[in-house]
Design a protein around this nucleic acid. Structure first.
Lengths: 237, 237
DNA sequence: TGTACATCAGTGAACGCGCGTTCACTGATGTAC
DNA sequence: TGTACATCAGTGAACGCGCGTTCACTGATGTAC
């Protein structure tokens, strides 16, 4: 008997896991240079030092490699957000919102190609399989919702605006609140969705180069300002 | 002498213009089915009913075709926004903001592939030439800025927040105000940038499918709600 | 501990495909006298 | 109005390239007795 779990700790299994990690790592490099649409199993095989057909031992198809990269990206982003949150007191709601926003931005700027895969144009002809990507893909919004809900429960949030008007929207929001077990009111949930979209909108503008190259000398300052305003939008003064 | 301008109205010149329009039209179809990265001059030639080398009489390279599509897209979006604005009184600032936002969203949902080309992931290996794309590419933000400035001049806007803090950001904002000839204060300009990014963030989330498929039964309602909140963000109650 | 068998990683050749771009060319359309 | 020449659209062949995926195979590593 070995000192590791049977099957998963055997040399062959460990070599396999290492190769899988190498494939994902190399895939990310190609994502950065060639983009998702041009991601090529043959190129990955070349960099792996292996004949092209050999990667089919590890990855069933090009689309499957894309899925691996999507999941890997969502998880890395989720980890970055979690790490940032671990350094902020749970009662500091505005601080937690700031931490999430900054972590997303920092990660996106460090990994623009993976960010583009997750939040940019859809890859033509590719549909991410929901079973594998939904979990990792909802980690950030889950953390954001946690912030609003915490703040609401703590009475630290004020939403004194008129309630959300269209009935169909209210019905959707009611379902969302039920599914997520939220006590925060409709208006707060709706504004939370806006803040979520707005944060990623700001990050996308910056990562994708929508601001002119010389418009802002210190984009971090712009983003921080926007985060403050967005915190106010959701009632966190 | 002919009844049209010499050179540009001659049958051959008109045929050439028609072919150019056909190329752009066909290019947009391929953009929608295959994506920008896979956009192929050969495929366009095929649909044009012409041998592949023939398109080089009209378009110097694949990248040049991409540029044509970028300019065409920005112009179509700009026209859509202008058309929407023409139906709203210039003094109705909140209404004009709403009109811009809705026009952007409507156009983006109708032309998701072109929207993705303009506001999604950058196309690997392609840089849009600034001389040709900057003009059309700034039409929407120019109209948004017009709304804030109009509202400010009319005294219809209240920005009672603390002024923008970091000095470098203030310097950038001062330059922007000077370049655009604005009298609106820093805080309003900064919030305007946020609203701009947020509107496109909301549209991108919807067009790129970041909201789950069944989360909102009536996405238009969500967007309209967000627009109202954003109008408040910029002082337009 | 040793042997027989099963599993698995990786090879190399092949399939059919599409791509951007160049080049010498033909024939039709336009223009200058 | 007629003719000679220039311009231009489109052809067809060719260049060298990369792609995803399948398949029969070799040889090494693991496992059961």
């Amino acid at each position: 008997m070995s000192d590791t779990a049977p099957g998963s700790g055997t040399p062959r299994a460990r070599a396999r896991e290492q190769t899988m990690r190498d494939i994902v790592r190399i895939g990310r490099v190609h994502l950065a240079t060639d983009g998702a649409a041009a991601l090529s199993l043959r190129a990955v095989a070349r960099d792996l030092g292996v004949v092209s057909s050999a990667v089919y031992r590890y990855v069933g198809s090009r689309d499957e490699l894309l899925t691996l990269l999507v999941v890997d990206g969502y998880d890395e982003l989720g980890d970055a957000v979690d790490a940032a949150l671990s350094r902020v007191d749970r009662a500091d709601h505005a601080g937690r919102l700031r931490a999430i926003g900054r972590a997303v931005r920092t990660w996106a700027l460090a990994e623009p190609a993976t960010y583009a895969l997750l939040f940019g144009s859809p890859v033509p002809g590719y549909r991410a399989p929901a079973e594998q990507t939904t979990g990792p893909g909802t980690r950030v919004i889950a953390r954001l919702v946690e912030v609003w809900e915490d703040a609401w429960v703590a009475g630290a949030v004020t939403v004194d605006e008129a309630p959300v008007s269209p009935r169909r929207l209210s019905r959707d929001l009611a379902r969302i609140r039920r599914d997520l077990g939220l006590t925060a009111p409709d208006e707060l949930v709706a504004r939370g969705v806006l803040v979520w979209a707005a944060v990623f909108g700001c990050v996308s503008f910056e990562v994708f180069g929508q601001y002119g190259a010389d418009t802002f000398t210190q984009p971090q300052d712009v983003f921080d300002h926007h985060l403050e305003v967005l915190a106010g939008t959701v009632g966190l003064a």
